[in-house]
């Protein structure tokens, strides 16, 4: 039951993204439906002529697009889909965690509520199994950062799995006739407000976002290195017991290694969060590519399976990013 709903939810944005399919089908009923939403007809017929292309769907679902244009000092600071999604995730995180924390802090000796216990177990997991395991008793100052990394990435990964609610709402409203939208569906700046408020994109599936997070990790590694080893950190990057002639070479290699770590972090998160979506879109895209009912069960079942895998990956990648960050910080706290 739940699976079928999930599959339906997954299928909806693809359907909504492809007015092409509807208008290119020869059935009269489909045309009548399109005709009913009179405002949409010109926009749709503009795209209706070309055939279904999976790359268009992928671009629509995975590519960032500006929703509100903003330019500061000549720098493009547009509020894009991912920015909105990030804000939605941050808001959800703050609205969930702050009251829970207040409730827990009020009665620390009382058994917390079910949600409180869940949050507490996650916090304890990050503190004990991630921070403390890789840093020992030096972990204390880094715990809030690691916790924020974990929850921020986790919520963005999970929200990315929810289809664009705004788009579904708008589509349902237009189909039922109680919402009208003037303008071009394919110009992201002119999308209706509901669509803009929940663009349903994976914020962590973008190199800009993951690179920024990895950059924060890199800065933290540097700060931790200098804080625990002082200025000697520059020399201690190289492990002890190396012949002095090899030292310059090793130093360059180790510095490169230091830079590779956050790079790998960024690429790993990006690739993992993109790959699953890509597979789901491709599987559902088969339906429209082959224009056949026979492929439907296979597509839906496959995408549901991948979706469940993605749920796991969402947690796993949040864990791995946080864990590796903790590990890297732990590795610069002492000379090796």
């Amino acid at each position: 039951m739940k699976k079928s709903i999930a599959a339906l939810l997954l299928a909806l944005p693809v359907l909504s993204a492809e007015p092409v399919v509807e208008s290119s089908q020869p059935e009269v009923a489909a045309h009548e439906q399109v005709e009913q939403a009179t405002a949409d007809v010109p926009a749709e017929t503009g795209h209706g002529s070309d055939e279904f292309k999976i790359s268009d769907v992928i671009v629509h679902h995975l590519a960032d697009a500006p929703l509100w244009h903003l330019e500061v000092n000549g720098l493009d600071m547009s509020i894009t889909k991912r920015v909105v999604m990030m804000w939605v995730g941050s808001l959800i995180l703050i609205l969930l965690l702050v009251p829970t924390a207040r409730k827990i802090a009020k009665n620390p000796y009382q058994a917390p509520s079910r949600f409180g216990a869940f949050i507490e177990s996650l916090v304890s997991f990050v503190r004990n199994n991630i921070a403390h395991d890789s840093m020992g008793h030096h972990s204390h100052p880094y715990e809030p950062l690691l916790l924020t990394f974990f929850f921020f990435i986790l919520i963005l990964n999970l929200l990315g799995l929810i289809p664009p609610l705004g788009e579904i709402y708008q589509m349902a409203g237009e189909a039922l006739g109680w919402l009208h939208h003037e303008g071009d569906h394919h110009d992201s700046l002119q999308l209706p407000l509901a669509v803009k408020l929940w663009p349903g994109i994976t914020a962590t599936g973008d190199i800009s976002v993951t690179a920024t997070l990895a950059g924060i990790t890199f800065l933290t590694i540097l700060i931790a290195g200098f804080a625990h080893q002082g200025i000697l950190f520059i020399r201690n990057v190289v492990p002890g017991g190396i012949h002095w002639l090899l030292f310059p070479l090793m130093w360059v290699i180790e510095i490169a290694g230091l830079l590779t770590k956050p790079f790998a972090l960024a690429i790993r998160l990006l690739a993992n969060m993109t790959a699953g979506h890509l597979i789901i879109l491709a599987l559902l895209g088969f339906i429209f590519q082959f224009q056949s009912w026979g492929i439907v069960p296979l597509s839906i079942m496959g995408s549901v399976a991948i979706f469940l895998l993605e749920l796991f990956v969402a947690f796993l990648q949040a864990y791995i990013f946080t864990f590796l960050t903790a590990l890297f910080i732990g590795s610069v706290q002492h000379r090796h």
Binding site: N129, A264, R268, A271, I320, F323
Partner: peptide, 20 residues
């Protein structure tokens, strides 16, 4: 399990590097 995840993550990083 922890050691496995670290190892798998590092290998995955190399693989992703090649893919990039």
């Amino acid at each position: 399990q922890v050691a496995m995840i670290i190892g798998a993550a590092l290998i995955e990083g190399v693989g992703l590097f090649a893919l990039v």
